[in-house]
Amino acid sequence: MNYNWNWGVFWAPSPDGAGTYFDMLLAGLQWTIVTAICSWLIALCLGTVVGIARTTGSRWMLLAGNAYIELFRNIPLLVQLFLWYFVVPELLPVQLGNWVKQLTYGAFYTAVIGIGLYMSARVATQVTAGISALASGQRMAGLAMGLTKAQVYRYVLLPQGFRVILPPLTSEFLNTIKNTSVALTIGLAELTARARAMQEFTFQVFEAFITAAALYVALNIVVTLLMRYIERRMTVPGLVAGG
């Protein structure tokens, strides 16, 4: 293959004037991290609420929860981001729509909301699964002891349910990180977007994408180790779920 390898290109100044090409990728990595964390917080909060709603025994809540999950899970993330970014502002009152369009970090907010909601549907199914995995006697025993429904969830079901689903939640967090790359389509200058920009400027395609890949792997390994640590800390001796 007639390709001119040049790893030194990372120390060459990038045309955006903010430092070297490596700095450019690192700045992209920062956006990736911030976007992933913010999206993940939304996904966890909403996913937990929806996941719980599907286990309360109320038919309406179950229906609403299922509708929510099917809506956000069945539409490709790319399409959802385009809807949030280009269609939703047009549906708002003109003034509000214009304000939204002029936001400085519009692409970032849109990405956080879009990815957050998409991932919340996936978290919700995990939360439901975690609670359903517990023996039904747990809930009954709690209620029989005189705890309110909210207390049963707070002190009995959720602490156990979350321990059950910690490993799959790790995967979902990793998915969130990887999904942030879709945000480049609405103009968020995250890691993948920077790698693309770098190959556009320098034509060093392989160096740019290999390095971006390595940064993603490194980031995901850090997250995996962190989650492992949390799993170990949360283990309750004797509880199967803690395994």
Partner: peptide, 17 residues
């Protein structure tokens, strides 16, 4: 605002973004 491609850049002007 950086956009992904030219069509999207024009869409930004078309929609007032």
């Amino acid at each position: 605002i950086p956009v992904k491609d030219h069509a999207e850049g024009f869409l930004m002007v078309e929609t007032g973004r």
